[in-house]
Design a protein around this nucleic acid. Structure first.
Length: 256
DNA sequence: ATGGCTTCATAGTGAAGA
């Protein structure tokens, strides 16, 4: 089972890239973030034509998440239960016995702002919910744009970023709290090249200079992690015309 | 040194992203 996550920064703009990537890579599951489309504008027909069933939860202009799957999606859940939130940032479904949770974690804008406190509150609610969700579904994968670079090695210039948004200690603590639930960072299960990132600013030719951050992650429950045989970041789509600023992250699971 | 781009909502420019 090949699972992947990609913040595509507007599905409207990026649909051709998504279709090309699906055709070339044939993932079983692709989680999308920042679709930026209300549900009545979701390009369902095109994705079904490509062989994917879809669950989606979107809104105009901001946020929006979706799960594309070759197999049927069961028990679709939108949002964090008992957490009141207008913003469409969470969708979950069970696919071939694996609970897939797709998240677009708030950006937080800058430390100590209202958006930052919302981010921390949101992460706390997510973690509390996942603790339950993992009891109900031991085989769980949490994929998405976490907007957190867990360690300094996930940042191109840790000194310049020290204490800032995406790397601050409270954010990293929140990431570790997810790990304490028994979730494993699939990317770090394997040897990886230094300076591996998943996001590069559109400005300042950041991609060409590899000035990036690793903020998109696949976390696997400890029941699932032993079945993971590979995890990588695909930089190829970032090289295209009009790319998303994020690259897809892909994990392979060898399930019985 | 600073801001540097892209998207969306608009119909000028501004907000937001990370």
């Amino acid at each position: 089972m090949k699972i992947a996550t990609w913040n595509i920064n507007s599905l409207n703009v990026r649909l051709p890239h998504v279709l090309d990537w699906l055709a070339a890579n044939q993932p079983d599951v692709l989680c999308l973030q920042e679709t930026k489309l209300p549900d009545d504008r979701f390009p369902l027909a095109e994705l079904q034509e490509a062989g994917y069933q879809c669950a989606f939860s979107g809104q105009k202009t901001y946020n929006g998440v979706a799960i594309l799957s070759k197999s049927p999606l069961a028990d679709v859940q939108c949002g964090i239960p008992d957490f009141d939130d207008e913003q469409k940032r969470v969708i979950a479904a069970t696919i071939d016995g694996v609970r897939i949770v797709c998240v677009y974690v708030p950006n937080g804008q800058a430390v100590e702002t209202d958006k930052y406190f919302y981010k921390l509150k949101w992460l706390k609610a997510l973690t509390a919910w996942l603790a339950e969700e993992m009891r109900a579904h031991p085989k769980l994968a949490l994929l998405g744009d976490y907007n957190i670079a867990p360690e300094d090695r996930d940042v191109y210039d840790p000194q310049a970023w020290a204490g800032g948004i995406l790397v601050s200690e409270p954010e990293r603590d929140a990431f570790r709290a997810l790990e304490r639930l028994g979730l494993r960072d699939a990317f770090r299960l394997f040897e990886q090249a230094d300076k591996s990132y998943s996001w590069w600013d559109y400005r300042a030719v950041a991609f060409r200079r590899n000035m990036g951050l690793r903020i998109d992650h696949i976390l696997l429950s400890d029941t699932l992690a032993p079945h993971c045989t590979a995890c990588s970041i695909d930089r190829e789509p970032r090289k295209l015309e009009r790319p998303s600023d994020h690259a897809p992250v892909v994990a392979e699971l060898s399930l019985p």
